[in-house]
Design a protein around this nucleic acid. Structure first.
Lengths: 255, 255
DNA sequence: AGAATAGTGTCTATCAGACACTATGCA
DNA sequence: TGCATAGTGTCTGATAGACACTATTCT
């Protein structure tokens, strides 16, 4: 097993506080945690909000459920060379490795950075948490065969009362707060329906995320305003339901 | 000058992909950037939004203006020992070192993590940006004598068209977006007035941050509702102005 | 007395919530 | 034909914006 490098040089040499750059440099040497990226990946299946979890095979937290994640690839270089991958790159790579979905087909955004000392018992790890939204029509392709990856969709309502590895429970809470707040003033709901969708389908997304019901008439009126504002537009075809088929719409990315 | 430690062991040994833990460990060894904390510190002085900047004395970006910041202290230990300071601790320490204001007297919150490869030309540095809000009655104590610290309050309207060191210009933009959005649905405006304040004073905060004017009557009505809702309460005394003195209020933290 | 700003009242357009009602396709 | 759900219409209360007006203190 590869051991993390030791900062013996920095630790043994006392910083020279009279030279500010020396002072800074000594702190930089002392500040070399591992940096990870963890992702709270949501989808909606069976009118239920799901999160993608992985069962850990190794300690610590062996056999616990955890969020997908991994370490950021960092190059060792100065001004000229490569310094490794961007944080968004690391998150996108992790996301596509875990879901096997093509890049760009999944909404991905930085969430919050978790860096509490001791959050990983092995060594100091700072994790830049992200969240992702997978359209329900793509979700069945994720974790389809459990032989490809060990990831499974689990109901959020069950998972919140389940101890997750590390501080992943906190990450899930923060991610839930984020999407519950953000759905009201940003178009993230359109990331949790197929490219074309009916108003009742969109309403179901709001109801699942907010945990309340919406009056069908009032909800429709709100999105009819978005049609006249050009934010969404009618799409050809109809959505077949158990009764009367519904008109489908499409989100206009740059109205 | 202290050199950053090299991860020669990890770089020369090929990861053993058949053992997942070995694989992970090798990535962890490869993922040891420096981690910094930078802070966008706002206040309002002379009816103008200000940000605290520092003139860099050393390369890179020598003589450029930069945000206050510093490296996170990270311990080298496993399960039992100390792993260093939390991110919030690092930010609070940096904030109090730079402003000399007592802890807890300044609002401080994590903003976003900037980790683009190459953002620091020396080595890979990932910076967890924060923002802080200093009450205007405390602001004059900050950077009062330029002998204590080298920090100065600069007008945001000037700074946005000024090249800052590293990606600190991006940090400022993100921080501005954040407070402009958040002032509408969270009580952060109360962090930019003295503990007691008049309605016109509070209105001035909104006007400076949003860059618009508010109708005095309509604005007052909104905050009168907050009085009846117990979010703010009348405080004794009056605020002396050039004309009619104004009633003062106090924010009720837990109504 | 007059300037300046605090503070009140009123009209209107917009929008959310509640809810009754109509339309249409499927079993 | 009846059921289920799509889709429409209407009433009401809350609120934001525009703006006219009154109140109080300082100079």
């Amino acid at each position: 097993m590869v051991r993390p490098p030791q900062t013996t040089a920095a630790a043994s040499e006392a910083p020279n506080h009279s030279d500010p750059d020396d002072y800074i440099e000594s702190f930089r040497a002392l500040s070399r945690p591992s940096v990870a990226v963890d992702i709270v990946i949501f989808t909606i299946l069976d009118a239920d909000l799901k999160v993608l979890l992985i069962k850990r095979k190794n300690p610590p937290f062996q056999e616990s459920w955890a969020l997908p994640g991994g370490f950021v690839v960092v190059g060792e270089s100065g001004a000229d060379g490569e310094q490794g991958e961007d944080l968004e790159e690391a998150a996108a790579r992790q996301l596509s490795e875990e879901t096997r979905l093509p890049r760009g087909s999944v909404f991905l955004e930085q969430l919050y950075t978790f860096g509490r000392a001791g959050r990983d018992p092995r060594t100091r790890v700072i994790s830049v948490a992200h969240y992702a939204l997978v359209r329900p029509n793509l979700a069945p392709f994720v974790a389809a065969g459990e032989d490809t990856t060990d990831a499974v969709w689990r109901s959020v309502s069950e998972v919140v009362s389940l101890p997750l590895a590390f501080d992943h429970g906190d990450m899930l809470s923060v991610a839930l707060d984020r999407i519950r707040g953000k759905i009201d003033y940003s178009p993230i709901a359109f990331e949790l329906v197929p490219e074309t969708f009916s108003i009742p389908e969109l309403r179901a997304v709001y109801e699942v995320i907010k945990g309340t019901t919406y009056d069908p008439g009032n909800f429709r009126r709100k999105f009819n305003r978005m049609v006249t504002d050009g934010i969404i537009e009618r799409a050809p075809g109809k959505r077949i339901t158990a009764s009367k088929p519904a008109q489908v719409f499409r989100f206009v990315r740059n109205p």
